[in-house]
Amino acid sequence: MDELELELKKLIIEALNLEDLEPEEIESSERLFVEGLGLDSIDALELGMEIQKKYGIKINSETENIKTHFASVANLAKFISSEKEG
């Protein structure tokens, strides 16, 4: 498992208080919102704030790609990697 993806899974569990879930139970390609993990818009805000704090990147919720970036752990990892490089 990719190190950043594992970090993100742990971050999701901690930030959103999903104590009954283990990082290994979250598939990297699994959808995070509605179906899949079942997160909602409040979870998205909390997760976005934690990602900004931890990785020091700006997340613009007005960006048209934001839903794609937050669709899965794999997409989030790609987004964070590209933001850190750029």
Rank of each mutant, 00 (worst) to 15 (best):
D2C: 06
L4F: 00
E7M: 04
L8A: 03
K9N: 06
L11C: 08
I12T: 02
I13Y: 01
I13R: 07
A15F: 01
N17S: 11
N17K: 14
E19I: 08
D20Y: 09
L21T: 13
L21E: 07
L21A: 05
P23V: 09
E27P: 06
S28Q: 05
R31V: 10
L32C: 01
E35C: 10
G36K: 04
G36A: 04
G36R: 07
L37P: 02
S41D: 10
S41L: 02
I42Q: 06
D43L: 01
E46F: 03
L47N: 03
M49L: 09
M49P: 01
E50N: 13
Q52P: 02
K53D: 10
Y55F: 06
G56Y: 04
K58E: 11
I59V: 08
I59M: 02
I59W: 00
I59Q: 08
N60H: 10
N60P: 00
S61T: 12
E62M: 07
I66C: 06
T68Q: 08
T68H: 09
H69G: 04
H69N: 13
F70G: 07
A71D: 12
A71C: 11
V73H: 01
A74E: 11
L76I: 00
K78Q: 15
K78C: 12
K78F: 13
K78N: 14
F79W: 14
I80C: 01
S81W: 06
S81Y: 05
K84C: 08
K84F: 11
K84S: 10
E85K: 12
G86R: 11
